[in-house]
Design a protein around this nucleic acid. Structure first.
Length: 137
DNA sequence: TTTCTAACA
DNA sequence: TGTTAGCA
């Protein structure tokens, strides 16, 4: 898996990242504070982001745009990290329908939790519920 | 010129 | 989240 090395190679400055993701530097730094990403640093303490960081930031952005809060985003990304860990490590067990079912179920849990939290926000709640309703048949 | 940290009318 | 101050 030398592809992982490429994906994690620190390449992009803050300026490139903000253009690539359309996030503000403030937002990017805040997400780092929250432990959502951990970019490398230059000798001058400048952040250097990898393709993986870009990926995560875009993921974060899309979730935030749907009204998911930081806590929710954290859980979603943790779930993504768990799946990646399982893919990198040899999984000697059943080859097929185990991993997908589990992650799907957990995803639903998380979304339900989000939905109940959002119900206290009279403002956007109807929009969010409309977006998320397809997960609860 | 760009980015960093810290802090707030 | 925005924005600003003061550095490197």
């Amino acid at each position: 898996m030398r592809d992982e090395i490429r994906r994690n190679m620190p390449l992009f400055s803050m300026g490139i990242i903000t253009k690539l993701t359309e996030l503000t530097p403030r937002q990017v730094r805040y997400y780092e504070q929250q432990g959502l990403i951990r970019p490398a640093r230059t000798k001058g303490n400048q952040r250097l982001f990898s393709f993986n960081d870009v990926d995560r930031l875009l993921h974060i952005k899309s979730l935030m745009e749907k009204g998911v809060n930081i806590a929710g985003v954290k859980e979603m990304l943790q779930e993504r990290d768990r799946q990646q860990a399982r893919e990198s490590q040899p999984e000697p067990q059943p080859k097929k329908a185990v991993k997908p079912d589990l992650s799907e179920a957990e995803l639903h849990k998380l979304l339900k939790r989000q939905l109940s939290e959002l119900s206290y926000k009279p403002n956007r709640s109807h929009l969010i519920q409309g977006e998320l309703s397809r997960f609860f048949h």
